[in-house]
């Protein structure tokens, strides 16, 4: 009996952090060693995540026509070559068009659908929300070939329309996820209070609901825009000489050789998206 009592007491002491002093030093050394190993792995993974991507910047300024050969001489000629080639500008224009149009379609349909979902019973909502995520899991090559066959049958192959709907299907899930997150934090009693005070459905939506879920809609729209702007695989099936998006143009050129011009373009795109991200952070902070 006494022996069990001792172990019990001992356990309670240790749980409360009152360990015998003699045990402490070796354990701490062991702990710090484990931490050092953990930190070594974590830093290595962190570097692996960021470093290769950042190296594209010096690659784009290196004076060698072979990507990644560091000659020690620096140049801006790849940027000059990039800006002189009108094909890039044309592709960027098509990409912008597709991204803007598909973002509008995805944001309107996705936001309306999410509102609808929140009026349904929780069980139906969970099922619908789950299945609306399908386009994120289905491999893009499958979506690509499916929409390609549909567009050929409908006589719409090679149209701007095919690219817009193809991208909208891919990006609606992002809008639904983002708006759902906002809506789940919204207190529906507020809408009821407004209804009792005589506000119609449209006024209630515009004055009560919209201001509160706007951050969710904006986040969803941004995600949709970035995804469309970046999309290669589905677009590969749908582009025509007339409507060729920037990522597809980049991909077609890269299939022969990855030139420093592509590195220059990548650097410009990275700078733009970084600035946009920083701008968004500042905007959010300013609003708070």
């Amino acid at each position: 009996m006494s022996s069990t009592q001792v172990t019990h007491d001992d356990a309670r002491h240790r749980a409360a952090g009152q360990e015998p002093a003699a045990v402490r030093p070796p354990r701490r050394r062991e702990l710090s060693l484990r931490w050092m190993a953990l930190w070594a792995v974590t830093s290595a993974v962190g570097l692996y995540l960021i470093l290769p991507t950042l190296l594209i910047i010096p690659m784009s300024f290196s004076d060698s026509s072979s990507l990644g050969r560091i000659s020690g001489q620096w140049t801006t000629r790849w940027y000059v070559e990039l800006l002189e080639d009108k094909d890039w500008l044309q592709a960027a224009r098509v990409s912008l068009q597709v991204a803007l149009l598909s973002t509008v379609v995805a944001t309107v349909l996705g936001t309306a659908a999410t509102f609808g979902l929140f009026k349904l019973s929780p069980r139906v909502r969970t099922i619908m929300q789950g299945s609306s995520l399908a386009p994120l899991i289905i491999p893009p090559v499958i979506m690509g070939i499916g929409i390609y066959i549909l567009m050929i049958k409908a006589g719409l192959y090679g149209s701007l329309f095919s690219l817009v709907v193809g991208h909208a299907v891919l990006t609606i899930p992002f809008v639904i996820v983002a708006v759902s997150t906002s809506l789940s934090q919204f207190d529906p009693n507020q809408e009821q209070a407004a209804a009792i005070l005589g506000a119609g459905p449209w006024t209630r939506f515009r004055r009560i609901v919209l201001p509160q879920i706007l951050p969710g809609i904006v986040a969803g729209a941004l995600f949709a825009f970035v995804t469309s702007w970046d999309e290669v695989v589905v677009s590969t099936f749908l582009v025509s000489p007339e409507y060729r998006t920037l990522p597809v143009e980049m991909w077609i050129q890269a299939r022969t050789t990855v030139t420093p011009v592509l590195a220059a373009l990548s650097t410009i795109l990275m700078v733009i998206s970084t600035l946009a991200l920083l701008g968004m952070f500042r905007l959010r902070r300013a609003r708070k």
């Binding site: 995540l49 960021i50 290769p52 991507t53 190296l55 594209i56 690659m59 990507l67 990644g68 970035v226 970046d230 290669v232 990522p247 980049m250 991909w251 890269a254 990855v258 592509l262 590195a263 990548s266 795109l269 990275m270 998206s273 970084t274 991200l277």
Partner: peptide
């Protein structure tokens, strides 16, 4: 980071490396 740097750019970087 992958969500704001394009997949193509990162793949090009690996080719250069």
């Amino acid at each position: 980071m992958p969500f704001w740097v394009s997949l193509l750019s990162r793949t090009f970087a690996w080719v250069g490396l």
